[in-house]
Simulated scan of single mutants.
Amino acid sequence: MTLRFLLCLGLGAWLSGCSHPVRDVHQTHLQPVSLQQATQTVASDLFARIREDKGMLGRFTEQSVAIDPITDRYSQEQVAVSEEMTAYIKAVGTALRMAKLSVLSAQTLRSSQYVIQGTLGLEKHPKQPNKLYHLQAVALNVRNGELVASADAWIDDKHLRYQALPEFNDSPMYLVNKQAARPLAESYSAARFLMDVQATALLNDAGQAYRRKRYAAARDLYRQAGTHATAEQMLRVYAGLYMSQLRLGQAAAAEQAFEQLLALSFAQRDVLTLKILFKVDSEVFYGDALAQQQYQQWLRKMTEYMTKNQRCLHITGHSSRTGSAEYNDALSLARANRIKSVLDAGLGGDTAQVTAEGRGFRENLIGSGTDDDRDSLDRRVEFSVPACVR
């Protein structure tokens, strides 16, 4: 008998993991429960798999885990409830006494072995008649990007604190998640995680600084994130530079950042998702005087870009989920036509360059129907860039 075989028969097998049983990395929980219970159940599943990932020795050693705050599944924005969920996840890890826990940042990334990421969004439950909030989360190995665990749970709380956090609320753009229709674990890519994670950590740092009104620090951190960012992440970088420099009174620098954001959006994405929003049941712009002034500036920059680059634009109006489908189709079209009239005027009356349609509430991002700031993204317009037909 070889020494290795003898070790595997004895205590050595228990400690070194000579054999690794095949395990299912995903856990699902269909019974709707409270936000706290759902979050803690998912966290318990993830931490159990993290401990297993280290083998038997993992039962006796602390694992360093960074929590990337939960984002809305469709807009990829962090909302107020994200902070609440982070606290619940931390509480589970502390109770298990098996993890050093922190929020994902550039500093904590350097010392973390695992990262937890997740999304939250209203979805059709497999066995319930109505849409419910669905939490999906994954645990990832920082070193190699391996998916260690995934779990999901359904939430029966109907009125979550869904207001966007300041760095997302003030952003001129939201980013539609193109993978939203697929389960989070299936849309995950180790290569993409490894490319994204450094910039993600720095963007979290920049967002924290912006939230604390440390706008100069936020600007510098957004610039630093730009040195690591993918093309998709650069949209958040330019948006962050725009809003932090605007807060610092650096109008020319903010305008330049917006121009870069616009150019990259046209180049990289099929849909331009400027955050031009409307009041409930109205064609009137949503937001304070500063926000409405920014809308006009954004539209002016769009006409300048279209003229310079000979681009055409299609505007799609949207509405929140209250009232009849017919009424909301008309309202969303009226919103699109309002934007079209502004762009037409800026283009010297060339009405063929801009087209418009209304989609009512068929393509809601939030879909809660609360008609307040929580579902303001549903009262939006989107811009697509078709080929010009002359």
Rank of each mutant, 00 (worst) to 15 (best):
D220M: 00
L246S: 15
E62M: 12
Q40L: 04
T370N: 14
V284T: 10
A199W: 00
L331S: 07
D68I: 00
M98K: 07
I89C: 09
M85A: 05
S324Y: 01
G12A: 13
L343Y: 02
L96K: 12
L313W: 01
V42W: 00
L221T: 03
F168N: 09
F266G: 02
P126Y: 00
V385G: 06
E326K: 14
L35S: 06
T119K: 09
V280H: 11
E304G: 07
A352T: 11
M1A: 15
A356E: 04
L377C: 03
A218E: 01
M302R: 04
L11S: 11
H125D: 08
Q128V: 04
R380G: 05
V237E: 10
D72L: 09
Y295T: 00
F285A: 06
S16K: 12
H318C: 13
G287Y: 02
H125C: 04
S332L: 02
K279N: 15
L277P: 03
R110E: 14
M85I: 08
G145M: 02
Q76E: 06
A13K: 09
F361M: 12
Q107E: 14
S244L: 06
E259A: 14
T94A: 13
T230K: 07
G121M: 07
V33F: 02
L246D: 12
A225F: 00
V22N: 12
A289Y: 03
L333W: 01
D157E: 15
Q208A: 15
L241I: 10
L120W: 05
L104I: 01
H26K: 11
D205G: 04
L246E: 15
S187V: 08
A151N: 02
H20K: 14
K340A: 11
D375W: 05
D24W: 06
L343I: 11
L147C: 06
Q294E: 14
Q224L: 14
R390N: 13
C8A: 15
I89P: 02
T322F: 10
R321H: 12
M306W: 03
Q63M: 09
Q63S: 15
L235Y: 05
L343K: 00
Q63R: 14
I366P: 02
D24V: 09
R359M: 09
E84F: 02
R161W: 09
V389N: 10
F47M: 02
E123D: 13
D196C: 02
Q107P: 07
L104W: 01
A291C: 01
L221Q: 08
V138F: 04
R300L: 09
N177S: 10
K178Y: 02
Q294V: 04
F285G: 08
L35T: 03
A387F: 06
Y174K: 01
F5M: 11
C18N: 12
N141F: 06
Q353V: 13
A137K: 01
G12F: 06
K279S: 13
Q107W: 05
A352S: 09
K100H: 10
G121E: 03
T94H: 12
F47H: 00
V33D: 05
I50D: 01
A190T: 07
T71H: 12
A199L: 04
A43K: 01
S111I: 08
A87M: 06
D170E: 08
A185F: 13
P183L: 05
